[in-house]
């Protein structure tokens, strides 16, 4: 996708978010002493800056799209990044239920495979040893108790 189109998308999204932030600011309680700035002053300044800047980006994006040639880049979207993100999300979802060691073992093995490792024994051993090591170093050595799960 051309940069002007990305600027246009960024302009639309950020302007919408800026307006949303402004709407949330309207709902803030303005508790302050007379003549002194309250807790809404800074959010209002941010809203103003946000909306002005994102509108400018939107405008530049629109001008850029109009001026650019009709040819568009055609590139296939890689799937691996999405798989990594979904795997990460799944890992975070199961982490509190099955604990750090078990969830990390599966996640680690999956990531090793995604990063190109195909040796099954290497994947199995590394994904068991490394997360377990991290767990014990942090819990016994540093006193940071990672989620245990039901065990």
């Amino acid at each position: 996708m051309m940069m002007a189109q990305r600027n246009l998308i960024a302009g639309v999204i950020l302007t919408a978010l800026g307006v949303f932030y402004g709407l949330l600011t309207v709902g803030l309680p303005n508790l302050s002493l007379p003549g002194t700035p309250g807790p809404t002053l800074f959010p209002w300044l941010i809203t103003t800056g946000w909306v002005v800047l994102s509108s400018a980006l939107l405008l530049f994006g629109m001008l850029g799209v109009r001026n650019q040639s009709k040819e568009t880049e055609k590139r296939s979207i890689p799937k691996k990044p999405f798989i990594v993100l979904i795997a990460f999300l799944a890992y975070l979802a199961v982490l509190p239920f099955i604990g750090f060691i078990l969830s990390s073992t599966f996640f680690f093995a999956g990531l090793m495979w995604l990063y190109g490792e195909r040796h099954k024994v290497k994947i199995t051993l590394t994904s068991i040893i490394l997360p377990s090591m991290i767990f014990y170093i942090f819990s016994t050595g540093l006193g940071i108790f990672l989620p245990n799960g039901p065990w």
Binding site: L95, S104, F108, L111, M112, Y115, G116
Partner: peptide
Amino acid sequence: SILMPTIAILCVV
């Protein structure tokens, strides 16, 4: 393949 999964897990930790 070892480095990146380690970083991912250490991000969580």
